[in-house]
Amino acid sequence: MIKVRNLHKSFGQLDVLRGIDYDIKEKEVICVIGPSGSGKSTFLRCINLLEEITAGEVFIDGVKINDPKTDINDIRREVGMVFQQFNLFPHMRVIDNITISPIKIRKMSQQDAESLARQLLEKVGLSDKANAYPEQLSGGQMQRVAIARALAMKPKVMLFDEPTSALDPEMVKEVLDVMKQLAMEGMTMVVVTHEMGFAKEMGDRVLFLDQGLLVEEGTPDDIFSNPKHERTKAFFSKIL
């Protein structure tokens, strides 16, 4: 479903990604781990072109996204993104945060969009917050709204960029639970995370990135219990 070929990304002189190849299949949950500065967030952001790709190719459903002829807005509609800092729109109520894109971009009717938003809020356990403003929510609640907002576009893939890193510890679980539910419903997900528990439990594949390269990939069992590469072992020896 997502094909990454020889992906390079540089910021000026700094080479953040130095040639990554990977295939993500439908309904897979891919967890991307690695030390900070390894390029894992950049890798994720290249998949919906929030970062311009320096060299290489990314295909989503066979469409090359970094082709100048491809309308990037069409691609992004199919790719949901959840950010570390939530990035809810503070000037809108929760429900408007969720409905704005379906209404403005998918041309859904106000009524349909609102009923969809209410379904999604129920799914993330926030039915009672439809009319609240983001500043009235806790971090965990904000992140769940952000997930609902991304889901409202009915994306084929969901990208999560360290979705729990900005949360207080007691709120991590409520967000991870929503993500688990999504995974079980068969959503294709790419998750950059430091939550090794989540990666172990929910990941179909785990990718270990270091210094802009895909060092090792495999099932969670392979990677966590039986890492082959020295750098992977060194990483785990520091964090586990």
Binding site: N48, N73, D74, M81, F83, N87, F89, I105, A150
Partner: peptide, 21 residues
């Protein structure tokens, strides 16, 4: 915060729409 623009773009909004809304 540039995250606001990124969030809007990631939802498929074209640049001008994101600017306006």
């Amino acid at each position: 915060d540039k995250g606001q623009m990124e969030a809007a773009r990631s939802l498929g909004m074209p640049h001008n729409t994101a600017m306006k809304l």
